[in-house]
């Protein structure tokens, strides 16, 4: 049974004026339970808007978002979200950040159960040593781990990841990809990954769907990734299937990009600015 369905989604931020602020058009997507789907797109193509429609922060102008057959109205604990910029609350420690989610998701559990759960989540992402640290004291990768633990702590049926690793360096990125996959395989939740990295999508997902660049972005044809799990990064490079799919997706995206560039007639005048000697006055 499909866990998530998007039907003819049309989204504009400015419904009164025509042709202005139109982000998404004609989006149709079905995600089955337990599936790992990746949506790949250029930056600025409306990926975050799409994510916010699915997690319930935004409402579509036209069309329907169905989660387990019911229309999405507002956010829900059944859909955990991992934001691109971690969105941890800087005045709370790692424990408190995760605890806040668990307090809301399991209001009926006893104090001890919640405490155990928070600690489990922290252990799962390997941050036990940093339990009482604040986000500022953590590295980017550690922060995103906290964010993962917070989203999963609510025990959601579906994880939505909005470019979760976009701000990380390549090495940390690889590590976290593995960790997310490991956690995902543990109890086979449905996962939706939004990314601009084709390799990341190929490594993690069962199915890849490109998002055509906006305005009026819509989804392209899907590409199946038929590579058995667990996948191995070094072996992937020699995998014929992988190479073929990768080339297809990149070719498709490049074509889209070129078309977009050819269509665009606007010329931007760049301001004539010279760099200035820039120095912070230390206090």
């Amino acid at each position: 049974m499909a866990i998530l369905e998007l039907k003819n989604i049309y989204k504009t931020y400015n419904p009164t004026k025509e042709y202005k602020g139109e982000i998404l058009e004609d989006i149709n997507l079905t995600i089955e339970e337990g599936e790992f789907v990746a949506i790949v797109g250029f930056s600025g193509s409306g990926k975050t808007t799409l994510v916010n429609l699915i997690n319930g922060l935004l409402k579509p102008t036209e069309g329907e978002v169905l989660f387990k057959g019911k229309p999405v109205e507002g956010t829900s604990h059944e859909r955990g979200v991992i934001f691109q910029n971690y969105s941890l609350l800087p005045w709370l420690t790692v424990y408190q950040n995760i605890d806040m989610a668990i307090q809301e998701a399991f209001p009926k559990s006893s104090k001890q159960e919640k405490d155990v759960r928070v600690k489990e989540q922290i252990e799962m992402v390997g941050l036990t040593h940093a339990t009482n640290k604040r986000p500022k004291e953590l590295s980017g990768g550690m922060r995103q781990r906290v964010s993962v633990a917070r989203a999963l702590g609510m025990n959601p049926e579906m994880i939505i990841m909005d470019e979760p690793l976009g701000a990380l360096d390549a090495l940390t990125r690889g590590n976290l990809q593995d960790e997310i996959l490991k956690i995902w395989e543990l109890n086979k939740r449905t996962a939706l990954l939004i990314t601009n990295d084709v390799d990341e999508a190929l490594y993690m997902a069962d199915r890849i769907i490109p998002l055509k660049p906006g305005p009026k972005a819509s989804l392209g044809p899907e590409f199946k990734v038929n590579i058995s799990r667990p996948r191995n990064k070094t072996e992937l490079n020699d995998n014929a299937d992988y190479k073929k799919t990768r080339n297809q997706i990149i070719e498709y995206l490049m074509d889209l990009g070129e078309k977009q560039a050819a269509e665009s007639t606007t010329e931007y005048e760049l301001p004539d600015i010279q760099p200035k000697d820039f120095r912070w006055d230390s206090k």
């Binding site: 922060l57 910029n85 609350l89």
Partner: peptide, 27 residues
């Protein structure tokens, strides 16, 4: 808005939202 989005996604109750997110953020 990131903090407010978090509050929405975690479905904090109004009082929780004020005391745990909005007040510390505007301190």
């Amino acid at each position: 808005t990131d903090y407010l989005n978090v509050a929405m996604v975690l479905r904090l109750r109004p009082m929780q939202k004020i005391f745990k997110v909005i007040l510390p953020a505007s301190l």
